[in-house]
């Protein structure tokens, strides 16, 4: 089974430190990584190997937890335990820190850019989610502070084509937000996980969301609009989200990250048991009760916890992973049918 996920290359990205997160630029040509060494590195392909194109080391005083590219690919945002988010502007192969976003009371855990590029979201250990507006002069203004979660917020991600935001938390829930009268409000709380929800990812359509948790399960949620044929009850005119599938018994420790490929529709997970797993949806199953099958399981994908998995947005089946061992791995997934 493991043969369908093949290791292409592995390299040390953040030596003597953790590599916390990796993110592909929109063209899929550059991979940004960040870690416990307070640095962000940008990697590019040269022939068959991957080389470090730039090191962004002057921005943060503490661990850089996550990074995100703007939809145009010209900006990189980095979220740090030092309670700030830096915005880096790309100029050829170098990056310049153009703004530092301050305001969170403590560690910033995640940052995400909306598909329009005009909005940015950050979340923090201080339990809040902040929405920032970006203007043409590269000025950032906080337009909303949402205090909907009751604990540490771990991850934020935008809907692939609407201005909807999702977040997940140490309080075991996932929340969905929309804009309402110049403010951002929580329109649904997704309850079901029994421990910290570490990450969430939308599928290509944005109608479904996958979440992964410290409870060692993955849940698939589906959006139902008011008046849906399935009879799922919604509050007012807002859509509601319902868990339609739980993948349990596959992971032996905390699942730290999940990535839903928008080209191939396959799901990858990063787990604290050092393994990477890939799941595929059974195309013949009921869309309201889908079945996902384990297609690949690489037990010792890294020598320590796998922290992140990310599908390349342009090359179907190309997966990047990173780990507490400081390494980045690049993998090719080949479906077996």
């Amino acid at each position: 089974m493991k043969d369908c996920l093949k290791l292409l290359t592995r390299f040390s990205a953040h030596p003597d430190s953790r590599c916390w997160f990796v993110a592909w630029n929109p063209k899929g040509t550059l991979l940004a990584s960040c870690g416990g060494d307070r640095a962000v590195r940008v990697w590019g392909r040269e022939g068959d190997s991957w080389v470090c194109k730039s090191v962004l080391s002057e921005g943060h005083q503490r661990t850089v937890r996550k990074v995100a590219w703007s939809p145009c690919g010209n900006y990189l945002a980095s979220a740090s335990f030092d309670a700030t988010t830096c915005i880096w502007k790309k100029q050829q192969d170098t990056f310049e820190c153009v703004t530092t976003l301050e305001g969170h009371e403590n560690e910033v855990k995640c940052v995400a850019w909306a598909p329009s590029g005009n909005l940015l979201a950050t979340c923090s250990r201080d339990k809040s989610v902040w929405v920032w507006e970006v203007d043409e002069e590269d000025e950032y203004e906080c337009v909303s502070v949402v205090n909907s979660h009751t604990q540490d917020v771990k991850h934020v991600i935008w809907h692939p084509n609407q201005e909807l935001l999702a977040s997940c938390s140490y309080d075991n829930t996932v929340k969905i937000y929309k804009e309402d009268d110049d403010d951002w409000i929580c329109l649904d709380t997704l309850e079901g996980h029994e421990s910290t929800v570490w990450s969430v990812d939308f599928d290509k359509t944005g109608q479904r969301l996958a979440s992964c948790s410290d409870d060692k399960t993955v849940k698939i949620w589906r959006e139902y609009l008011p008046g849906n044929e399935q009879g799922v009850v919604c509050k007012g005119s807002d859509p509601c989200w319902k868990s339609i599938c739980t993948l349990s018994g596959f992971h032996t420790r905390t699942i730290y990250d999940i990535s839903w490929c928008h080209l191939t529709n396959v799901l990858a997970t990063a787990c604290g048991d050092d393994a990477i797993r890939v799941f595929e949806e059974d195309a013949t199953s009921d869309p309201h009760q889908p079945i996902f099958r384990l297609m690949a399981h690489v037990p010792k994908a890294h020598s320590q916890d796998v922290n992140c998995v990310a599908w390349n947005p342009k090359e179907g089946g190309l997966l990047a992973s990173c780990s507490d061992d400081g390494d980045i791995g690049l993998w090719q997934y080949e479906p077996q049918n």
Partner: peptide, 15 residues
């Protein structure tokens, strides 16, 4: 127990 098992919070505490 939950706090001790959360490696992200342990990492932040140690900074």
């Amino acid at each position: 127990n939950k706090q001790l098992a959360d490696k992200e919070r342990v990492a932040a505490a140690l900074e």
